[in-house]
Measured scan of single mutants.
Amino acid sequence: MDSLVVLVLCLSCLLLLSLWRQSSGRGKLPPGPTPLPVIGNILQIGIKDISKSLTNLSKVYGPVFTLYFGLKPIVVLHGYEAVKEALIDLGEEFSGRGIFPLAERANRGFGIVFSNGKKWKEIRRFSLMTLRNFGMGKRSIEDRVQEEARCLVEELRKTKASPCDPTFILGCAPCNVICSIIFHKRFDYKDQQFLNLMEKLNENIKILSSPWIQICNNFSPIIDYFPGTHNKLLKNVAFMKSYILEKVKEHQESMDMNNPQDFIDCFLMKMEKEKHNQPSEFTIESLENTAVDLFGAGTETTSTTLRYALLLLLKHPEVTAKVQEEIERVIGRNRSPCMQDRSHMPYTDAVVHEVQRYIDLLPTSLPHAVTCDIKFRNYLIPKGTTILISLTSVLHDNKEFPNPEMFDPHHFLDEGGNFKKSKYFMPFSAGKRICVGEALAGMELFLFLTSILQNFNLKSLVDPKNLDTTPVVNGFASVPPFYQLCFIPV
């Protein structure tokens, strides 16, 4: 009986604490739906499609509103004006990374994606500088992407125009580009180590996009005490870190300090320079996690976009025909596509942009946080508050993009057929937390897609009208449904 009384008292205290925290903070924060004790607004949000729920709530509470995930307040920004004001106009104040408990377990605050403060700034600055020195957006990395595009075309030829699921092959190409940047090595598509790495990356994007992960991140005790797919994700990350550590040891034994070959060499050189400046942010643990982040951000996002792009091109054969006509006119058949071609191919450029806009790969991006107490639109948001960005509300804005739910390359073309930029184009987020590999991803999408369409016609196994382009999961990332196609050599 005594234990029951204690339990009831504990629960009562928890409920009172929950109510007090919510009521004391709500006077400062933007308005929002009334949260339930302990669980907050979790029942009012469709976990399978958070973005749709945010759109519905914005119609009631406006472009800036507050939700509670458990006891934790989260300020939501919906629509271009609110997102721009926060991420661009007040970029420094909104540059923090929001709480992501599962990532905390995986990387302990290291790396480039989930770190904060001085650690994040130094690692991000170093990573950007190193990638630029190796030619991100310049010639040397373009050579690597072109080489991988040629290998991709050869792998597709091996399908002999038979029906195939493109998931694996389209994942190999961007993964190999990242391998060449980090390890100075590309792998054969049949290499077992490479296959294991690909498998872990593919599993992780599916797990991260599941409703279960949303629950884990908002009720963090689940991570330590409950079984579930989150444990598989943590094991996959541990596998990748151990693999990278092996490569780091190989580099330490063979590195030429006067001739760095890749990202690992550059990081080890930085560690050597910083060894007298303790404590340094440049450690082996930081290198492991930064490399894992580059793999995660640079492989599955690009391969998922490529997979979605081919599905949309199957669905819209008239678009595919126009792209192939432009390829034939500008590039021809006797040389590989290059980035200089893009400025002469406005329709193809528009298609690449429209694919990214339409699929809305990361509907709410990753959570941000404010780095200080900030007054925002007459609300006071306390330091450390998590900020949720609705990228969907920007990419699918119906004023900027008429009929935003329709796939239409003319969203990025003017009346004369010239490519038209849009400030609403934010597939990689915006501001200080914009994806480090934005330029690389854009290069890969253009070169891989043009190389495929230069060499193959795409054949659907069903009537294009019957192809479903609805994402199968739409949590962290929008993942396309399973499909097969035939690559018919031109």
Results as ranks from 00 to 15, higher is better:
Leu9Val: 13
Cys10Met: 14
Leu11His: 01
Leu11Val: 12
Leu14Phe: 11
Trp20Gly: 03
Ser23Trp: 08
Ser23Ala: 10
Ser23Asn: 14
Gly25Asp: 15
Arg26Ser: 13
Arg26Tyr: 12
Arg26Phe: 15
Arg26Ala: 11
Lys28Phe: 14
Thr34Gln: 15
Pro35Cys: 13
Leu36Thr: 09
Pro37Thr: 03
Val38Phe: 14
Asn41His: 04
Asn41Glu: 01
Leu43Tyr: 06
Leu43Met: 13
Ile45Asp: 01
Asp49Phe: 01
Leu54Cys: 09
Leu54Ser: 03
Leu54Ala: 04
Asn56Ile: 07
Asn56Asp: 15
Leu57Pro: 01
Ser58Cys: 06
Leu67Val: 14
Tyr68Arg: 12
Gly70His: 03
Gly70Trp: 05
Val76Ala: 04
Glu81Ala: 11
Glu85Cys: 06
Leu87Gly: 08
Leu87Lys: 04
Glu92Ser: 09
Glu93Ile: 06
Gly96Val: 10
Arg97Gly: 08
Ile99Asp: 09
Leu102Gln: 08
Glu104Ala: 14
Ala106Thr: 14
Gly111Ser: 08
Lys118Arg: 14
Lys119Met: 14
Lys121Val: 10
Lys121Leu: 11
Ser127Pro: 06
Arg132Ala: 09
Met136Gln: 14
Gly137Ala: 10
Lys138Asn: 13
Glu142Gly: 03
Arg144Ser: 08
Gln146Val: 11
Gln146Asn: 09
Glu148Arg: 00
Glu155Leu: 04
Leu156Phe: 09
Lys158Trp: 03
Thr159Lys: 07
Lys160Gln: 11
Lys160Pro: 03
Ala161Pro: 02
Ala161Glu: 06
Ser162Lys: 14
Asp165Leu: 00
Ile169Ala: 07
Pro174Met: 11
Cys175Val: 10
Asn176Gln: 02
Val177Cys: 04
Ser180Glu: 09
Ile181Asn: 00
Ile182Gln: 01
Tyr189Thr: 03
Lys190Gln: 08
Lys190Thr: 10
Asp191Ala: 05
Phe194Leu: 12
Phe194Ile: 11
Leu197Gly: 00
Lys200Leu: 14
Leu201Ala: 06
Leu201Gly: 05
Asn202His: 13
Glu203Ile: 06
Glu203Asp: 14
Ile205Leu: 10
Lys206Val: 09
Lys206Glu: 15
Lys206Met: 15
Ile207Asn: 09
Leu208Lys: 10
Pro211Leu: 07
Ile213His: 15
Ile213Gln: 05
Cys216Ser: 03
Asn218His: 12
Phe219Val: 09
Ile222Thr: 06
Ile222Trp: 08
Tyr225Leu: 15
Phe226Thr: 06
Phe226Ala: 11
Pro227Leu: 05
Gly228Trp: 09
Leu234Gln: 11
Val237Leu: 12
Tyr243Gly: 02
Glu246Arg: 09
Lys247Met: 09
Lys249Trp: 10
Lys249Val: 12
Gln252Tyr: 15
Asp256Asn: 14
Met257Gly: 12
Asn258Lys: 15
Asn259Trp: 07
Gln261Asn: 09
Asp262Met: 01
Asp262Val: 02
Phe263Lys: 03
Ile264Asp: 05
Asp265Trp: 02
Leu268Val: 07
Leu268Arg: 05
Lys270Leu: 08
Lys270Ala: 05
Met271Leu: 07
Glu272His: 11
Glu272Arg: 12
Lys273Gly: 09
His276Pro: 11
Asn277Asp: 08
Asn277Thr: 09
Asn277Trp: 10
Pro279Leu: 14
Ser286Glu: 12
Glu288Gln: 15
Thr290Ser: 10
Val292His: 06
Phe295Met: 12
Phe295Leu: 14
Glu300Gly: 12
Glu300Met: 15
Thr301Val: 15
Thr302Arg: 01
Ser303Arg: 06
Ser303Leu: 03
Leu306Ala: 02
Arg307Pro: 02
Tyr308Ala: 07
Ala309Val: 03
Ala309Leu: 08
Leu314Cys: 09
Pro317Ala: 10
Lys322Asp: 08
Val323Met: 08
Gln324Glu: 09
Ile327Met: 05
Glu328Leu: 13
Asn334Tyr: 12
Gln340Arg: 13
Asp341Asn: 00
Arg342Ile: 10
Met345Asp: 00
Asp349Gly: 10
Ala350Gly: 04
Ala350Cys: 03
Val351Phe: 08
Val351Gly: 00
Val355Met: 11
Gln356Thr: 07
Gln356Lys: 04
Arg357Glu: 00
Leu366Val: 12
Thr371Trp: 08
Thr371Ala: 07
Thr371Asp: 06
Lys375Arg: 11
Tyr379Leu: 04
Lys383Thr: 07
Gly384Met: 05
Thr385Met: 03
Ile387Leu: 08
Ile387Ser: 01
Leu395Val: 07
Asn398Ser: 14
Lys399Ala: 15
Phe401Pro: 04
Pro402Ala: 11
Pro402Thr: 14
Glu405Asp: 07
Phe407Ser: 00
His411Arg: 11
Ser422Thr: 11
Ser422Asn: 10
Pro427Ser: 10
Pro427Cys: 15
Phe428Gly: 05
Phe428Tyr: 15
Gly431Pro: 04
Cys435Arg: 02
Glu438Val: 08
Leu440Glu: 01
Gly442His: 15
Met443Val: 10
Glu444Tyr: 05
Phe448Glu: 00
Leu453Arg: 01
Asn455Met: 05
Asn457Ala: 07
Pro464Asp: 05
Val473Arg: 15
Gly475Thr: 10
Gln484Thr: 06
Leu485Gly: 02
Pro489Phe: 01
